[in-house]
Nucleic acid binder design. Structure first.
Lengths: 186, 186, 186, 186
DNA sequence: TATGAATGAGGCTTCATTCAT
DNA sequence: AATGAATGAAGCCTCATTCAT
């Protein structure tokens, strides 16, 4: 009997193992040999489980992203007032800056290198997950959460490409103030 | 008798000519042959003026002045009330969606493929140009303009990668409402 | 308790089962996985019974008896006159065109991929079977049957590679006429 | 200025140079590196002139086959009687056995590895060339020439795959006798 | 025995870069 | 200066074969 393998489980393992290298180098400049090395298998094995490099990349998101996200977001402690929550939340977000930057770059690579429709679906699923978590935690309407998430995406981008000029704290503080004020009016 | 050529001028010409193709296809998937064709020279000539493909890409941003990238701005007509201005502005922004998406992707390629410090400087210059234009036109403090620009960046991204779920109008409408309210308080 | 297996019998089974796929796709473009699937065993089992892919291919011809290859023959009904027989025979041959084309291609693959001497022996055995059948059925001397078979081989080839130009009926009609005339003289 | 190259001429040169290796090893088992070595260029250059391996193979026939064929056939000396002509012709054909065998194998590879329609056209052109030459030289009607060519194809095949059993002379002698007799009747 | 997961050499192809003209 | 033909390293992928279970 050959080694008993749960294919899906194995795929997931491989995906998890190569997340780091993709996250570090993006899509295009990662070679199959590197992926194989990272996943500690041969290139042949890679092709035993995935038809193409692109498929590895795509499935990686299916397996990794939601989990990582959940892991990342599940750390809030509850607090009472919206203002405090906002502060805690954005502070937290700031702590994971680099992580979110990598994800953002990776998602853009994903968008560039995959079938557009598929990419959009996958990315949307990830985004919706975030948005719902934000809404739940901050006890805000989903539209506001979506607004916040969109804005935070913008922040992640600008902090990455313009770190000298952009102050995360200032930007976020201003945004929080605006949201707070708006919320109090309604 | 060699052709008299102003090297810098020639470089600038080439850069401008290949902006379109880079903006359309990104960095990695544009070949030197394509660049040469676009710039209407031979690959040999390309290497006479630039040491590498990456150098072309980097210098392109130097020659593509912010005004060029933002050439679509500056078409506003003035109107009185902030609300109207906001509406006009965001409507306008929405019209050029695809263009901004391409620029966003391009800048990310630039960030990925160039020296980080240089890329950040160049991108910052472009961003600041936009932000100042926004501040000037909407007669808003620069911090608010920065906030808006950051947010608009997020929108461009989300509209690109999640078009099924995200409504530009709704998102922007909500944002405008919030900004407006905030502005009236101060 | 291991399964009791008659190895030779097992080999024969496998060979017979994969004849179809080889005949359809040729030697080179059939993979071991496909052979395994076709024979309803694992690739490991394949290698338990055969040392290489080539060995499978070679032994296949050993087990595929000439009668199998020529199974389509033997369906003739007897009729009296040579002319009628010729017509019936060539009509019949024409009906199985595609089948004979595949066999022809397969034998050429065999010739190319196997030890020349072995291939020649096997192919000769198959050919002789055909020729004898022709001689028997048409009641013609073996030399004439050989002539006919050689000619029919040529026809199979030309119909395959030049279907637009070659008319099976015309070619065969002419040939029959010639044979007939020759026969009547002797 | 770069080296001045007549692309078509260069393509033809490359094709001619790699005819030998293809003719010796067939299509599938010839690698691009071998082709390059044979043509005395780099693999890159190969792709400068041909988009794929298949294209090289296909164009090789366009360039090579008619010419080689012509060269081969242009050696007849005229003689008076049909019988003598037939003898000379078939003798000649026998002399080039190996050459025709290679061509036959190669054409079958061509048929297998190219778009069917294209392959058929190319092969038909070659065949028609032969047939016309036969008709012209032997002063026979085109249908008889076609018949002969078809038959000769069959002979080439059988001599190749069954050399122990098949006698070229006998087969051809018999065929000549039949043709001769038929011709005298009409 | 039987399985099929695992291997890795080697195939085709791409493309930034070099260099003879 | 300008050209574009030529290069060859390196990428993705295939598949006959091996081997642990």
């Amino acid at each position: 009997m050959p080694k008993i393998v749960n294919h899906d489980q194995y795929r997931e393992d491989i995906c998890k193992k190569c997340f780091a290298i993709f996250s570090k180098k993006g899509y295009a400049s990662v070679t199959m040999r590197e992926i194989a090395r990272e996943a500690d298998v041969s290139t042949g094995t890679l092709y035993h489980y995935f038809p193409t490099k692109q498929a590895i990349f795509e499935q990686m998101f299916q397996y990794i992203a939601p989990e990582n996200v959940a892991q990342t977001l599940g750390q809030y402690t509850q607090s009472m007032k919206l203002e405090e929550k906002l502060n805690q939340f954005t502070h937290f977000w700031g702590t994971y800056k680099t992580y979110y930057q990598n994800i953002l770059l990776l998602l853009i690579d994903f968008y560039r290198n995959s079938d557009t429709g598929t990419a959009q679906q996958v990315i949307d699923r990830i985004a919706m997950f975030y948005i719902n978590e934000i809404a739940k935690y901050l006890e805000l309407p989903i539209e506001i959460a979506e607004l916040m998430f969109t804005f935070l995406t913008g922040i992640v981008y600008h902090i990455m490409v313009r770190p000298e000029t952009v102050s995360f704290e200032k930007l976020v503080g201003l945004f929080n103030a605006i949201v707070l004020e708006y919320q109090q009016q309604h």
